[in-house]
Nucleic acid binder design. Structure first.
Length: 424
RNA sequence: GGAGGGGUGGCCGAGCGGCUUAAGGCAACGGUUUGCUAAACCGUCGUAGGGGUAACUCUACCGGAGGUUCAAAUCCUCUCCCCUCCGCCA
């Protein structure tokens, strides 16, 4: 959510951002409603002032046991007027809010202009693509022959896109999760294990609602949404709360399963683990003062990158252009790992700075040490990382000619010391 | 699911139709004085919105939404959340 005053003062900028981000919020209508609303406020507040003054008079007269009926009669009509205007203001507030919900966040000045993902900028690349003296298999072949996953049976019990891990596949996934959580907590993140179902207020707070309502699983009977990422519960932890400045920054990491309907994406990346309805992810979330948020974004990205490096996977960092930037983000880096079996990069993390866009929606503020002013915090988050796609890159990168999969050294302690996954 | 209790400023907590401009305390900030992890005293101190170049001023806000009334933190209705007990269950 943007500040109305900001929109009032920078209408052209906001309009341009809507065009660049391909959002069709009606800024002119919004400005008109805002001006209209303020005009009514001026009128009604004059009336309310009259009422307050008269009210005091009435109470004085009553105390002195004098007649107040003429003032009361007059106030009756004034009050009726107030009621009419108040109703009008409420209508305007609602209308303005309806429009405001669709206004996207302003990109940071360092974000490039572009149409879509093809205009994203590669910031850095790391690692070497593995070389094979044989034709590398993809994760589905590997997973099937080693019995790591069972897509056919999970489709039977739930449907396509619901993965099932088995044996060493399940162990590998668990190893990845534990390795990530241990690494992040060692680096200063506090671990959170959040609820998986959240109320609509939470889904709205982090920006999933209203825009991506159809992308979430919804339990109608209880009005609860299955989380598409741990970002939702963790960011909402401090909804309607006020920090003191010395409490910031706060760094959280949270493992959760993530649920996404992926409506409308049928036929795209449908193979195996590439795009699924349920996957596991360790999420990183930060709350910080505005001055530090871009430093925190860089450090957040490094935390996520550290995992990929430790696993020895080739990857690249991409800075999203404004056309590819999500609704709520000011700046975003995508981390993409190389999957040699697929012969393509897979997005395993998005590290974003939302500045005060989320904080404004969910009302998270902090009191400045100097001056004691209340200000909105900045929120950031990034995957650190999603395991489903990491598994794809991992098994494809570390496959051998014998059809086994070598285990990266950092994961071995989490795999009971196993160095290699071999056929049974 | 059933029965009670409760939601008031950063925190605690009084108020239960008009002498409230939400008491009082804590915390915070500024100052005076005395000085060994500090105390005492004085002062300032909610948030949001509107108007004004400004000092300032007006309006709203007591979980949320309606209602009664000239007037609502206070009365009524609905609703959400928290706590305790009972039931059911992992």
């Amino acid at each position: 959510m943007l500040d109305m005053q900001f929109i009032r003062e920078n209408p052209d900028l906001v309009k341009q951002v809507c065009v660049n981000k391909k959002e069709d919020a009606d800024i002119d209508l919004l400005l008109k409603l805002d001006a209209e609303r303020r005009k009514i406020i001026r009128t009604v507040e004059k009336l309310k002032n009259r009422r307050n003054v008269a009210s005091k008079k009435i109470s004085e007269l009553k105390r002195e046991k004098r007649d107040a009926s003429s003032v009361i009669a007059e106030m009756k009509t004034v009050s009726e007027g107030i009621k009419v205007y108040d109703t009008k203001i409420k209508e305007f507030d609602k209308e303005i809010y309806e429009q405001m919900k669709w206004v996207p966040n302003i990109p940071h000045e360092s974000v490039g202009h572009g149409e879509d993902e093809k205009d994203n900028v590669v910031v850095s690349e790391w690692g070497e693509a593995p070389e094979f003296n044989f034709e590398p298999a993809d994760h589905i072949q590997l997973g099937t022959s080693l019995e790591l996953f069972d897509f056919a049976r999970s489709a039977k019990i739930s449907g396509a896109g619901f993965p099932l891990y088995k044996g060493y596949g399940a162990l590998l996934d668990r190893a990845l999760i534990n390795f990530m959580l241990d690494t992040h907590t060692k680096n200063g993140f506090v671990e959170i294990s959040p609820p998986y179902l959240v109320n609509s207020q939470s889904a709205f707070g982090t920006g999933q609602l209203p825009k991506s309502k159809d992308q979430m699983y919804y339990v109608e009977e209880d009005d609860l949404y299955a989380i598409p990422t741990a970002e939702v519960p963790v960011t909402n932890l401090y909804r309607d709360e006020i920090f003191s400045e010395d409490q910031l920054p706060i760094w959280y990491c949270a493992y959760s399963s993530c649920f996404r309907r992926e409506a409308g994406s049928y036929g795209k990346d449908t193979k195996g683990f590439l795009r699924v309805h349920q996957f596991n992810k360790v999420e990183l979330v930060k709350f910080t003062v505005p001055e530090k948020s871009y430093d925190e974004l860089e450090s957040l990205r490094e935390s996520a990158e550290g995992i990929i490096r430790a696993l020895g996977l080739k990857y690249k960092v991409v800075s999203l252009c404004d056309g590819d930037l999500s609704f709520a983000a000011s700046k975003c880096y995508d981390l993409e790992v190389w999957a040699p079996g697929e012969q393509k990069y897979l997005e395993v993390s998005s590290c974003s700075n939302f500045e005060d866009f989320q904080a404004r929606r969910i009302n998270i503020r902090y009191r400045q040490s100097l001056g004691g002013k209340l200000q909105y915090v900045h929120t950031l988050n990034g995957s650190g990382l999603a395991t489903a796609r990491m598994l794809v890159a991992l098994v494809e990168t570390y496959q051998t000619q014998e059809g086994t999969i070598r285990i990266p050294e950092v994961l071995q302690p989490y795999m009971h010391g196993m160095k290699e996954i071999c056929p049974e």
